[in-house]
Design a protein around this nucleic acid. Structure first.
Length: 310
DNA sequence: CTTACGGCCTGGGTGC
DNA sequence: TGCACCCAGGCCGTAA
C-alpha cells in the first residue's frame, strides 16, 4: 500500500530514470480509473516530463512544452507565461499500482493499463491489478483546486501547526491521521506505527490529546516517515519501487500487522480493532484506551457544548 | 457543519 | 478444481 514513503521512493526513482524525457504517444487499456482518458491522449503527446513531485500520496509529473517540437503541440489560447510547466499528470498508486519505465520490446505485464512511449524508446507503464489508483491530467485552475483540497505535509508542518490541527478536530486521532484533507500522505501503516510510538490509542479524540501528546506524535510521525523513506518504504504485499526493488521498512514495524504478537516495549499482545473503518493495530497496555472504548463501536460522547438553536 | 459508518469498486490469497 | 469469503484505500451517500 503505497503511502508517503513509498510514493516518495517511486518519485525519486522516476526522477532518476525519466526526468527530461518526452512523451511520444499514449496507449490506454482499461480506463475506469482515469478521470478523463481522452485528455491524456490529447494533451500528453509531445510534452516533456520536466519534474516529478510528490504531493501526499500523489505523484505529479509536471509536463512542459517540448521546445521546437512542431506545431502540432500548439494549444491555442494558452500562454506559456515563461513558465515551461503548463500542466501535470497526477498519478495515485492506490493499493496495487506500479509505474516504471520498461524497454518497449518487453512484453506487457498483466494489468498494464497505460503506456507512455518515451523519446528514448522506452515505455513508461502503469500497471495496477485492482485499479484502485487514479490518473488525471490537470492544468491551470483545475490543478490548483485539486491540490488545494489536501491538508498539511507531515514532513513540513511545524509542531505548533500540527498541534493546532490535531486539537481542532473531535474525530478520532486515527481518522485524522488518515484524512488526506487534514494531513496528506499518511496511510494505515504509518498511522498505526506513529500512534504506537507516541503511545496514543487510535480512538482517542484529536481534541482530547494533550499538547505533549500531540507534540510527541508530530515528532515520531516525522521521524518514522523519514526513516521509512531512507529504507525505501514498506513492502507488505507487493510494493516495489520504480526499479522493481522492495523496501525494507516493514522490518521496523512495531504495530502494523502484528496482531497477537508481543509488544516490543511491554510484551503484551498487540490487538487489532476496526477504527475509522480500517484495521488498527495497537498495544492495549502502552496505548491506553479512552474510558468508553469497547471494541469497535464507541460513539464519542454527544456534544453539548454548542447548541444550534435557542 | 462535523463526524461515523456501510457499501462499492477489484482481484489475490486463503480455507474448505 | 471450484468457490465463498476477506481485505485493502478512497469515495460517496446517508444518518446523527
Amino acid at each position: 500500500m503505497p503511502e508517503l514513503p513509498e510514493v516518495e521512493t517511486v518519485a525519486r526513482g522516476l526522477r532518476q530514470s525519466i526526468l527530461g524525457r518526452r512523451i511520444v504517444s499514449v496507449t490506454l487499456g482499461k480506463t475506469d480509473f482515469i478521470d478523463d482518458p481522452a485528455a491524456l491522449e490529447q494533451h500528453l503527446p509531445g510534452r516533456r516530463i520536466s519534474a516529478v513531485e510528490r504531493y501526499g500520496k500523489f505523484m505529479l509529473l509536471r509536463l512542459g512544452q517540448a521546445e521546437g517540437a512542431g506545431s502540432y503541440l500548439s494549444h491555442p489560447g494558452r500562454i506559456d507565461d515563461g513558465d515551461n510547466v503548463v500542466g501535470s499528470l497526477l498519478v495515485h498508486l492506490g493499493m496495487t499500482g506500479h509505474i516504471a519505465p520498461f524497454p518497449a520490446a518487453k512484453p506487457h505485464e498483466k494489468h498494464t493499463h497505460v503506456c507512455f512511449l518515451l523519446d528514448d524508446g522506452r515505455e513508461l507503464r502503469y500497471i495496477d491489478a485492482r485499479r484502485f489508483g487514479r490518473m488525471a491530467y490537470l492544468e491551470g485552475p483545475a490543478l490548483e483546486q485539486e491540490l488545494q483540497e489536501f491538508g498539511a505535509d507531515p514532513l513540513v508542518v511545524s509542531v505548533e501547526d500540527f498541534v493546532a490541527l490535531v486539537r481542532a478536530h473531535r474525530a478520532r486521532i486515527k481518522a485524522l491521521l488518515l484524512d488526506q484533507g487534514v494531513l496528506r500522505g499518511v496511510g494505515n501503516i504509518y498511522a498505526d506505527e506513529s500512534l504506537w510510538r507516541a503511545k496514543i490509542h487510535p480512538t482517542r479524540l484529536g481534541a482530547q490529546l494533550t499538547t505533549k501528546q500531540a507534540r510527541t506524535l508530530h515528532r515520531v510521525l516525522r521521524d518514522i516517515l523519514e526513516k521509512a523513506i531512507v529504507l525505501r518504504g514498506s513492502s507488505i504485499s507487493d510494493f516495489l519501487d520504480a526499479d522493481g526493488e522492495p523496501g525494507e521498512y516493514q522490518r521496523h514495524h512495531r504495530a502494523y500487522g502484528r496482531e497477537g504478537k508481543g509488544c516490543y516495549r511491554c510484551g503484551k499482545l498487540i490487538r487489532r480493532a476496526i477504527v475509522a473503518g480500517r484495521s488498527s493495530y495497537f498495544c492495549p497496555r502502552c496505548q491506553p484506551a479512552p474510558r468508553r472504548f469497547k471494541g469497535t463501536l464507541p460513539l464519542p460522547s454527544p456534544k453539548i457544548s454548542r447548541r444550534e438553536m435557542h
